[in-house]
Every structure is written in structure tokens, then in C-alpha cells.
Design a protein around this nucleic acid. Structure first.
Length: 418
RNA sequence: GCAGCCGUCGCCAAGUGGUUAAGGCCCCGGGUUGUGGUUCCGGUAUUCGCGGGUUCAAAUCCCGUCGGUUGCCCCA
């Protein structure tokens, strides 16, 4: 029979890895809750229309990367390729603009894009993201970036650089687009095929081209900052001075424009220089999207947010060591008695307890205990039960303790460290 | 979507046209009568990702397909 394997671009997170994922999520819950951000869970699939309108018809995501299908009632359904659109839809649907502003939300979960899988890039991948919706105060951008920064620090990820840029207000960006296109029209026939396509689809991307000959041509291209209106200039300035005041170092990357249509003003990315992730150096990215909510039919609600790729984070954390916890294995000639003791200890001492289901020989149970990475063994055989005692073995210290009551046993396992 | 490389047991692999496809790790069973990952004995691929073709003969050559990987595009 043919073996069934997971579909292309998907992967299982096995127990050897899941503790790391739990660690990441626990840190997210902690960091974001302390800042008053609350979790929102939206559906994994939405009406296709939501994404084509929110993410933008011209984006690659909508053009060639969506997992779209027709359901049994002929509705066009799409597996969400990113988190912001669903959050925005929920914000409008439940009139969250009537709540306190800004609404401070975060989310986690799988996203889907039909792409060629590569290291650090999957068809089903997991993101953690946050959105602050309802106010345009630039201090919110700073708060959101600072939280990203703190979160990454809490996780213990180092060597990330923050790149920021401003793409200005929608009006100033449109003005720039015209200027840029006028400039590019001179070179229309000289540039690479990719750039020809970019001119049609997303002219700002042209400046990011990797072909050296093209780069030489673009040297004299107009700068987006030069087309900024007063408001755009001021917002970007506040951004920069704010980051400096918060002690967050950054670089300005004028080629940073982001792939999604809904962004405006501040955009940013945290990147790693770890080569192991291949071309996927961006670990967290986001920006401001002041018009998305109104474009989707909601009350005008400026917003800012970001998302990070959990696989990429997990990759960077793989080598990290986690603090050891106590792990107890009961060695007994009676699975029933061992089970009773295990359940009691789990609830009374909040310690991880396992035991043997096979009533194997003592030497064998010792081996199993070690194989389970136990830190302690409790000998609990007929002799011990008769005398009401527990022989505790510390596997690391290679020491034995004869405890003569359950109370003594409990106090032995009190506390967190091994 | 395009181009290159790769695919032998759960893992690491030897084998590159010719009798029964090495080896190591892990795993499983057994021996050492209530104490340590040791040791000893034994077991585990009718088959080389899958399908087809060439040949007297294929894991080895050819075609296709699936999957992985690297680069491009793009992106978290």
C-alpha cells in the first residue's frame, strides 16, 4: 500500500519540538497580556473576497498564493494567507470601534500560502501577530514595535536588526508612484524581466531589484521621502526620535516597501543574519494600515500591527537549552499502587510523575526511568508499602533518601528546581 | 511558476548492471531473582520514494511522477 505522507509544504510538530512552541506561545501570552493586549481568534477560512480586497489584487499573495476552493454551496472560500484581514473583518463585524480605542489585539495560528516550500517557508505556517486598531497616534507604532522587541528579547533571540521605513500617506505615495513611473519609463526596455513586471504591478518594488545593472540605473531615481507631505514627514520623524528615546537601534531601509497593499506610513522588519534560514531572513514584519478598515466598509480606524513567523523563531531557538524540571518515575511491583501514588503526587506536589504499566522487573523499570529522562525514582514496592515509606533516588546526584511518610515525600518534591 | 542537485530500514549510511542489499545508532525480545544508560544472546528492508521502460539480469541505465533541497520570484 502506498504510504500517505503530509501534503507538500506542511509538517508535523512532534513532541521533541512542541515544548519549544509552547514556550514561544507562553511568552507571547505573558508579554502581550502585561501590555493589555488581548487574544482574538478568527476563522482559518474566510470569504475569498475579504483577502482580495484587504490584501490587494496586485499583491502576489492574492495573485498566485491563495488556497482558494469552492465549498458545497458554491461559495468561494480561502484559507487565510495572513492574519490582519480576518482581524479587521471581525473588528468591523462586531463593532469593536465602539470599544475603547485603540483595540489592542493579538492572535496566533496557522496561515496558508500556495508557494514553493523552502527552508523557513511552508504552505501551512504559523504566525503570532498583534494589531492596535482605532488611533493614529505614532506612540502606538512605538508601543507595538517595542513589544515586538521585548518579546524577541524575552525569547532570548539575539542578533536581530530592526529595519524601518516610511512609505508615507496614501496620497503622497500615489504622487510618488507617478514620479517614479515617469522616471522608469526611460529605461523600460533596458531593465530585467522582473522589473518590467514590477512596473506594472508594484512599481515601488523595482528599487529593490537584485540585478546590479538595474541598480545602477536606479541610482538617480526619485526618493519617496521627497514626495512626502508635511504630515508624512512629521510622522516619520516622530517615529525615529521615538525609537531613539526608547533605546531601540534601527536602520532605515528605503527599499523596504512590504508586499501588502494596505500599508501606509511606518513599515518595519526584524531580520536575522543567521544563514541557516536561507533567503528567509525576515522573522517579524509589520506596519501601519490606516485605510484598511474603512476600505472594508468599517468606521475609519487607523491601525498598526505586525506578524512573526513561528517556524523561523523556532529555528532560531532550536539550540537553546530549557531549564530542567523534576521528572519522577515510580518503580513498583503494582501498577495500581503506582498509579494511585502518581495521581496523588501530581496533584499535591505539582510534579511530573510517570510509572511503569507493565510491572516489569526492577532493573528494567530503572532503565525505563532513565530512558524517560527521569530526575528521580521512587521505589514503591511491597516492602515500602508495608512500612509506609518511600525510597527516593536522585539519579543525577546518585543519592538515595529513605522517606518515612507521605508528608516527607511531599516536602522532598516541593519547589521548582531539580 | 522556472532552473540545478538529491531520494537505499525510524536515523546515519555502504553498494554505481550479475549469486541471499554491508555496517553503526535507535527499537523489540531474552539472560543477570529489589537498583543505573553497561555487557551478552537473538530479532527487525522478499527490497532501494512511486510508476513505467531498456536488459538474459536494475538500488544501479532511461522516461515520467511524487517529495526534499538550493537559487530566482515573493514572503512571516
Amino acid at each position: 500500500m502506498e504510504k500517505i505522507i503530509s501534503p507538500r509544504g506542511t509538517k508535523d510538530i512532534l513532541p521533541s519540538e512542541s515544548s519549544l512552541w509552547q514556550f514561544i506561545e507562553a511568552k507571547a501570552i505573558e508579554t502581550f497580556s502585561l501590555a493589555g493586549f488581548e487574544e482574538i481568534r478568527t476563522p482559518i477560512f474566510e470569504h475569498t473576497q475579504l483577502f482580495s480586497r484587504a490584501v490587494g489584487e496586485s499583491s502576489d499573495i492574492v495573485n498566485k498564493e491563495m488556497y482558494t476552493f469552492t465549498d458545497r454551496s458554491d461559495r468561494s472560500i480561502t484559507l487565510r494567507p495572513e492574519g490582519t484581514a480576518g482581524v479587521a473583518r471581525a473588528f468591523i463585524e462586531h463593532s469593536l470601534d465602539r470599544g475603547s480605542r485603540p483595540q489592542k489585539l493579538w492572535y496566533r495560528g496557522p496561515m496558508f500560502r500556495y508557494e514553493r516550500p523552502q527552508t523557513g517557508r511552508y504552505r501551512q505556517f504559523y504566525q503570532i501577530g498583534m494589531e492596535a486598531i482605532g488611533l493614529e497616534a505614532p506612540f502606538i507604532d512605538l508601543e507595538v514595535i517595542k513589544l515586538a522587541y521585548n518579546f524577541l528579547q524575552e525569547l532570548g533571540i539575539e542578533n536581530l536588526t530592526l529595519a524601518i521605513n516610511s512609505i508615507g500617506s496614501a496620497a503622497s505615495r500615489e504622487a510618488y508612484r507617478q514620479q517614479l513611473l515617469a522616471f522608469l519609463s526611460e529605461y523600460q526596455d533596458d531593465v530585467c524581466d522582473d522589473c518590467k513586471r514590477r512596473m506594472q504591478q508594484n512599481p515601488l518594488r523595482v528599487l529593490d531589484c537584485k540585478v546590479p545593472e538595474d541598480q545602477a540605473l536606479y541610482k538617480n531615481a526619485p526618493l519617496i521621502q521627497d514626495s512626502f507631505d508635511e504630515e508624512s514627514k512629521q510622522i516619520f520623524m516622530q517615529m525615529k526620535t521615538g525609537l531613539e528615546a526608547l533605546g531601540i537601534s534601527y536602520t532605515i531601509d528605503s527599499s523596504l516597501v512590504r508586499g501588502l497593499d494596505y500599508y501606509s506610513h511606518c513599515v518595519f522588519e526584524f531580520k536575522t543574519d543567521d544563514k541557516g534560514l536561507g533567503q528567509q531572513s525576515t522573522v517579524l514584519a509589520g506596519g501601519r494600515y490606516d485605510n484598511l478598515i474603512s476600505e472594508l466598509g468599517g468606521v475609519s480606524s487607523p491601525a498598526v500591527g505586525w506578524a512573526l513567523g513561528m517556524e523561523r523563531i523556532a529555528y532560531l531557538l532550536e539550540a537553546k537549552k530549557f531549564p530542567e524540571t523534576k521528572r519522577v518515575y515510580i518503580i513498583s511491583d503494582s501498577a495500581i499502587e503506582a498509579s494511585k501514588l502518581a495521581h496523588q503526587l501530581r496533584f499535591d506536589a505539582k510534579v511530573l510523575v510517570e510509572y511503569d504499566f507493565e510491572e516489569a522487573k526492577v532493573a528494567k523499570q530503572m532503565n525505563k526511568a532513565l530512558k524517560r529522562n527521569a530526575s528521580h525514582g521512587i521505589f514503591y514496592l511491597e516492602d515500602e508499602r508495608k512500612s509506609g515509606s518511600y525510597l527516593v533516588k536522585d539519579f543525577q546526584a546518585k543519592a538515595e533518601f529513605n522517606l518515612t511518610s507521605y508528608t516527607e515525600l511531599l516536602s522532598f518534591f516541593a519547589g521548582d528546581s531539580v
